[in-house]
Design a protein around this nucleic acid. Structure first.
Lengths: 130, 130
DNA sequence: CCTTGACCTTCCAGTGACTGGAAGCCCTAT
DNA sequence: ATAGGGCTTCCAGTCACTGGAAGGTCAAGG
């Protein structure tokens, strides 16, 4: 299977797939003409990568996860620990964004948004208003 | 005022302040010995940058905001538009993270987390379970 | 058979927003 | 005199791609 098809099936740009190969995340066969040849297994790995990346795991975490995935002897505790850590990070991030949302919406609500030059948003950013 | 003091007052690393100068966000004076010399005005700008960056505005947005801030003739509508856009982005991001949180916590909850090799998290990432 | 256009290859460079580190100057205190 | 800390510049690295150039390959249409 050519890279274009694999890309479509995995939901990843071809560029990204080549990049993943560069950094050693998979090693597809080559066809006689030099084109990369993706197996169903390769596409499976790619989809795994696509999903875990979109869940916010770093490429290095994905690498760990992938190796745990292919290792039949691994303990699920390891995987759970990684996911648990990530979960905590997500919670922190949500809390931060909520604070940010409150601040921004406060600023937006108090800005009349017309042609007059004074603007509570800029004042807020400048630290003149709290 | 030396860069170290300015850094402390603005709540930014000195490295970052030099970087901001590189990309044209401010232009402090120089002392006789070649050291950068920050005025209270400069520190004000830096604090403005620190605050708006931490609110999630990109450096380019900060550049716009700063120029609107120094432009006494500007219309507050422009500023409001930028902040409004950012607010929508923040809302989207929160929604995404909530979905992610749900998925991850579901996976974590269903992983027994012991020495057995089977693990619902990896199965979930592989797309074998929904 | 030739051309066109889509797809593939490699390699190099750029993104954003810093961050780290080396080499060397400046200033103060002991 | 020397030790330390802070300052300078410049170059390189980070992360995870992304864009683009230059060129090889393949299937279809004329």
């Amino acid at each position: 299977m050519n890279i274009g098809t694999a890309a479509e099936r995995a939901g990843l740009p071809a560029k990204t797939i080549r990049y993943y190969e560069d950094i050693g995340l998979l090693r597809p066969d080559r066809q006689g003409n030099g084109y990369r040849d993706y197996s169903a297994q390769d596409v499976h790995r790619l989809r795994f990568l696509q999903r875990s990346r979109s869940l916010g795991f770093s490429v290095d975490e994905c690498r760990q996860l992938l190796s745990l995935y292919s290792d039949k002897e691994r303990e699920s505790a390891e995987v759970k620990a990684i996911a648990q850590t990530k979960l905590t990070e997500v919670e922190t991030k949500i809390a931060e964004l909520k604070g940010l949302h409150e601040l921004l919406s406060h600023l937006v609500a108090h800005c009349h948004g017309d042609e007059r030059p004074d603007c509570p948003i800029l004042d807020g950013l400048a630290g003149e208003t709290h």
